[in-house]
């Protein structure tokens, strides 16, 4: 079985995985990070959204091996030192969640939306940005409110962190994650080839 090395929430992990293991399966089943959820089987709901190398991605549609050497942040890695991330705090303060099942995906997507658009995006834009995530409970209204409040708080935090001469903006949780997963280029190429073979085989079936 091929091995996979990832930096997950700041920890370097190396595990054996099958070539068909999805990133979400790897996170949930092999690492026990069950905060990332599965709500559909067609990449429509976004409950599985995590950060991979700084982007919000749907972990149900990424083969774990294709992420080899990457940095992954899940909902479990967002809060720091027992303190909720400003976006998590905003969801709580604005009742941006009800059953909580879609919430980790929304929060992970929201952090990236806020980083890209800042706190002044209008309601229409934010609703458009949330196109990749489904929520059945909230009617989205308080999620919009939460993202706006979270974006504002993130900016304020950033400003504060700059004053305290933090080397990196704390709003990017990936910044805390190790970026030199221990592996050779050969290994990397080998794994990539395995993934390609798997994809090719899948097409054939």
């Amino acid at each position: 079985m091929p091995t996979l090395t990832l930096a997950v929430n700041g920890n370097i992990v190396t595990r054996e995985v099958t070539s068909s293991t999805l990133l979400v399966q790897f996170l949930r089943d092999q690492l026990g990070l069950t905060g990332t959820h599965v709500g559909c089987d067609s990449t429509q709901c976004g409950a599985c959204t995590v950060h991979l190398n700084g982007d919000a991605i749907k972990s149900c549609t990424a083969l774990a091996l294709s992420c080899d050497g990457g940095k992954v942040t899940t909902i479990e890695g967002l809060a720091q030192n027992g303190k909720l991330h400003p976006m998590q705090e905003a969801f709580r303060a604005n009742h941006g969640l009800q059953c909580g099942y879609c919430t980790p995906g929304f929060v992970m997507a929201a952090v990236k939306i806020a980083e890209r658009l800042g706190p002044n995006a209008d309601e229409e834009t934010l609703r458009e940005e949330m196109d990749g995530n489904l929520c059945r409970c909230t009617g989205y209204q308080n999620i919009v409110k939460s993202i706006r409040a979270g974006a504002k708080a993130m900016l304020e935090n950033e400003a504060r962190d700059e004053i305290s001469s933090s080397p990196q903006g704390l709003t990017d949780p990936d910044a805390r994650v190790c970026n030199d997963a221990p592996q050779t280029q050969e290994q990397s190429a080998e794994r990539k080839a395995q993934v390609d073979v798997f994809i090719e085989n899948s097409r054939g079936s």
Binding site: G35, T36, I75, E76, F91, R92, L97, P104
Partner: peptide, 19 residues
Amino acid sequence: ERAEDARLLLGEGRYTDDI
């Protein structure tokens, strides 16, 4: 604010598939 939110926001919910 809701008591259950901290758990759900931290990814520490106990949905049946998590346990």
